[in-house]
Design a protein around this nucleic acid. Sequence first.
DNA 1: ACAACGTACAACCATTCGGTTGTATGTTTC
DNA 2: GAAACATACAACCGAATGGTTGTACGTTGT
Lengths: 120, 120
Amino acid sequence: MNEMDEDRADAWFHALSDRTRRDILRRVLAGEHSVSTLAKSYDMSFAAVQKHVAVLERAGLLTKRRQGREALASGDVEAVRSVGAMLTDLEALWRGRIDRMDELFAEDAPTTDTTTHGTD
Amino acid sequence: MNEMDEDRADAWFHALSDRTRRDILRRVLAGEHSVSTLAKSYDMSFAAVQKHVAVLERAGLLTKRRQGREALASGDVEAVRSVGAMLTDLEALWRGRIDRMDELFAEDAPTTDTTTHGTD
DNA sequence: ACAACGTACAACCATTCGGTTGTATGTTTC
DNA sequence: GAAACATACAACCGAATGGTTGTACGTTGT
């Protein structure tokens, strides 16, 4: 895991660590929304919502396209999948631990059958 | 999505938003480690690492058990899976958007078959 | 007994974060 | 062209974050 990946991960998880941003992401994944439309949904200033959108955009979780005076935001599902993939990698580490525990069991026990491991 | 879930999600993503914490989580998912063992891996004070462990613990991503003078930390893979599930839910919203786009196509096209909607 | 180890926690500090208001600029609409 | 709308961004502020050092306390080894 190199420095650039960690930077991206920092940005992803930080972007997702705020409930308003998670809610914005839900909306823009379900469909395009202008920033002002989004802003009307929350009990805070337009500028605050705009900043949240900017954080999501910098993290690559959302893209904006300009149409006239509106900025239409759209969620990037590929980025969401990348975050999910990171967690799957974490799970894999855990599974490795379990496998190692199984090996210890196998070493300890009288070897009845070493060829088939029905661990799944 | 109620208030308590959002609090948990805030804690999860915030805990994961720091690269040191992600690294600690990787290690304790792979196997139990004492806090001081973990601390030796990073270029920061013991207290700093201890705080990171505490953040992960409060988020429920890791549990500690006391053995003598050591505090052994172990990653909770179920919590990691819960975070992953949240992202899967986000993906589902996106898929809903795509389905709706398909419907628009279908409405636009000459009606060949309106009775069966093979959207799955 | 006592020194070394492992942990816990408080106090402090610089930086970041999440919010505000205000100002500027481009785009519709009348 | 003026008014209303949508965005962008800077400046500011209190709270939280990520680090530090110092202190205290139980546990282990000699």
